[in-house]
Amino acid sequence: MITAGALLMVVGTTTIALLVLRWVGGAVRRETIPEPQRLPFLGGNPPTTHAWSRYHIRYYAMALLFLAFDMEMVFMYPWAVVFVREGTVALVEMLMFIVILLLGILYAWREGALEWA
């Protein structure tokens, strides 16, 4: 089946879902939403500032590790397709590749890069 069909289906589902959401939202009589109803929910007290801020993600070291480790999948998919044909040579090659990358994770774990900074 053509993959474009899948793409079309995704785009179609998204737009249809969006339109239904907007139309249904509109079907209920919508006065404009008053300011007090827009107050973010903190349990009863107003926030002093916008929530949008320079948010300190505590796992930035893990994110960098992910960026590098993500490439491992790219090499593994084609390997999986031809693995049985290629035999044990492919197994050894991929084993080397994976061990190299696991060293990176070991280093990150030892340095405490996986915990919250």
Binding site: V11, T13, T14, Q37
Partner: peptide, 23 residues
């Protein structure tokens, strides 16, 4: 129920997110 809004949301992305999840 009336869809709610906060003081200064990113309205388009907010409406797009559930649709993207379903898609």
């Amino acid at each position: 129920q009336q869809p709610s809004r906060t003081e200064r949301p990113d309205a388009e992305a907010w409406a797009f997110a559930p649709a993207l999840l379903g898609a």
